[in-house]
Design a protein around this nucleic acid. Structure first.
Lengths: 338, 338
DNA sequence: TTGAAAGCGATACCAA
DNA sequence: TTGGTATCGCTTTCAA
């Protein structure tokens, strides 16, 4: 079957390729009559311009990339929803890449994108990444990047984030106001800027109230699920186990629930729990989980919106380049006074 | 800054463009010496071939599309994980499109892809779609399509699905064995093949045991969340309310929990619930939800695997073109005998 | 208002 | 083993 391209249309209409091209792009110097003829045939043959020829010629891919540490997580999947909505509105395509929290994968993916495959990148960093060469390369490449949620402190690009320090502080004081005396803090590697912000908030609140900041109250979980679960369970089995747990990452709160079930610890009687979480089912858990909830959809939408703003006028440098949205504390039974 | 392309490399090395191209693709008829020289310079200048020039020339995009009804849902996000893993292993890129259960959007997206932007498509249909013109166009376009989960009965392509009829039957008999007499069935529009399969299983089980199949036990929810919730709540408020509910879609099970909480109905004492669900937190709900769980990751992986099989040898027609994986019933407290 | 032709960057065929 | 050139499909400049 013959491809339908400009040449084909031109031949059937006895016109030049350039005329057909201009007619389709509604150029001013084409007569109404030919425009109509061209459009009619194009529709009849279901003409679709070849995207690669276009991209090659125009140096624009009409595509953005989203690089994420994971996707089976309500925060990120809702954020993608926001991103996709904006992209569709701008007639852009969205490429997805998942790093699975692997720094090597992240670097490899970024390098895949340096050659113009995408016009811009939305990115949430993988945990535990020390080396940032790939980010430096990105910055040199003139491809605009917007970080969201897990942003980079060291690179001067646009960021969409939440008030992590305040949220960390707020979550901790919430536990304290519920009579918790030994408050544990659960985090991933702790390397990410947002983890550090949240932890600073935790530490400041704990110190301000004269509570223990013993190192053994801080559990750093690596990406290995089993390992993390074991560490958490171990902490909850100790004699001096905490009476309050602040999970700075969604999945860790779930581990706490599972560990408590196994250890027959009652929530909130024996341990109170608060977690950063966008779980749809937080209110249906047993007991309902008190959460710090991030505006996932809006963060995705904002990040995409700013990216397209830059794509439309690349010469403009964003002055105030960090957009901070607010997370909400939603109080539920897991931190109720008993 | 000058682009690094073949021309540039050729000039700096005093070679022809074609020679450089062949050297980089490790062609047999290029001397080791020049290969080395070319590779060295390419690495030094960080040469990245232009993907669009390549795609234009080779008529291959190294990209697949995934079209989904929604993404903020554990089933689909885990399925994407499986898809992305296979795609990365094959050095392919993954475009994501979300239809939000809108038939119009689905059709528009499919039409965007008819022009060669992708080499293949993985697709899960949107609900309530009657018109299938866009699928017909797809089939004519020679772009291989693999349906997964929400497959099409009418189009003869490759399908990856689960044993929906049996699962529907099994879920229903499970409720019956837990002494349920009036079993409600919750579904979306009911237009999708998988919905019909599941419902057939439900009906057969109910009839076999001589229980009521009254129409008012079947609740068809449209895509509107509020509307769906109201319908479910209304059913649970009636005097002849069901004592067992089978939610054939994940989100509907959540509505049942929420409605029961509002109506002060106890699960499982007053109503027992089973649901198709891939919720990470099913076991932590109050009470833990008995589920039919689909192998989401494997379904994504299988679908992608078959797609790449076809992409590698397009002339081969798949004989047995439906792959059926098995869902599991996981019994939990929401269907416990009381 | 329309046509001819150059060029985007990579590949592959034909010559040498 | 290497070079020259046509080609993929589209856009755009220059000429007519």
């Amino acid at each position: 079957m013959d491809q339908v391209n400009l040449k084909r249309l031109a031949k059937e209409l006895n016109l030049a390729v350039s005329t057909v091209s201009r007619a389709l792009s509604d150029s001013h110097d084409i007569s109404e009559e030919t425009k109509k003829k061209v459009l009619a045939l194009a529709r009849k043959l279901n003409y679709q311009p070849n995207p690669f020829a276009r991209s090659l010629r125009n140096r624009s891919s009409k595509t953005i990339a989203v690089i994420l540490p994971e996707i089976a997580n309500n925060y990120f999947s809702v954020a993608i929803n926001g991103i996709e909505e904006v992209a569709q509105a701008n007639n852009y395509h969205v490429l997805i890449y998942i790093t699975h929290e692997s720094f090597q994968k992240e670097a490899a993916i970024v390098r895949l994108l340096l050659n113009g495959r995408v016009d811009g990148i939305l990115m949430s960093l993988s945990g535990g990444a020390k080396d940032t060469d790939h980010l430096a390369e990105l910055q040199k490449s003139n491809i605009p990047v917007v970080f969201f949620d897990r942003v980079s402190d060291t690179f001067d690009t646009i960021r969409v984030t939440t008030n992590n320090f305040e949220s960390g502080y707020l979550a901790t004081t919430h536990l304290i106001s519920r009579n918790c005396q030994r408050i544990a803090y659960l985090t991933f590697s702790g390397d990410l800027s947002i983890e550090q912000q949240r932890m600073k908030g935790y530490l400041e609140a704990v110190q301000k109230h004269g509570l223990s900041t013993a190192e053994d109250l801080i559990v750093r979980c690596d990406t290995n699920a089993e390992e993390s679960y074991k560490k958490i369970k171990e902490m909850l089995s100790r004699d001096d186990r905490p009476d309050g747990v602040f999970a700075s990452v969604e999945s860790l709160a779930i581990y706490v629930y599972e560990a408590c079930a196994e250890l027959r610890l009652r929530i909130p009687e024996d341990v109170k729990i608060i977690g950063f979480s966008n779980l749809r089912t937080a209110s249906l858990l047993n007991p309902a989980l008190t959460t710090i909830t991030q505006p996932a959809f809006n963060m995705g939408r904002e990040a995409a919106r700013v990216l397209f703003e830059v794509l439309k006028k690349p010469h403009v440098r964003m002055e105030d380049n960090t957009i901070v949205l607010r997370s909400n504390l939603v109080e539920r039974r897991s931190t109720a006074i008993t």
